[in-house]
């Protein structure tokens, strides 16, 4: 079986993840595990996950994302999701998934700004 891993970059005290291709279930779960491990290994207090290339999110991936955010919170880190496409936002809302307490930004740059402000606050 293919084993694709999503690269996680570290920049100062921030982890940056850019999801470049369609997520299958295994890759999504692997990503969850990798991210939590990376957080544990490093001193990262913030995470930006960029979803610009993603053209759909179903309830499974939404759950994985939501879980990642809750788990990161438990480990003391803040998560900002960036680049959710209009089509993706609309389908999420229609699925009834609001991702209520999630921080969002239009793009990676805005996301990093927002994270900085959140961490300073």
């Amino acid at each position: 079986m293919m084993n694709m891993r999503i690269p996680i970059l570290k920049l100062n005290d921030t982890l940056i993840v850019s999801i470049q291709w369609e997520l299958d279930d295994k890759t999504a779960l692997q990503f969850q595990e990798d991210l939590l491990n990376k957080m544990h290994e490093t001193t990262a207090r913030g995470i930006v996950i960029d979803l610009t290339p993603i053209d759909f999110i179903d309830s499974f991936i939404a759950k994985v994302l939501g879980d990642v955010i809750s788990m990161s919170g438990l480990m003391g880190a803040k998560v900002v999701i960036t680049g959710i496409q209009p089509a993706v936002a609309i389908t999420l809302i229609e699925l009834g998934i609001r991702l209520e307490d999630v921080l969002t930004a239009l793009d990676l740059e805005n996301g990093l700004d927002k994270l900085q402000k959140e961490l300073e606050a």
């Binding site: 759909f56 999110i57 209009p86 089509a87 993706v88």
Partner: peptide, 14 residues
């Protein structure tokens, strides 16, 4: 269009 494509893809996935 892109929004309906996302709707259809998501429905199939579910």
């Amino acid at each position: 269009g892109t929004v309906d494509q996302a709707r259809i893809t998501t429905a199939i996935s579910e």
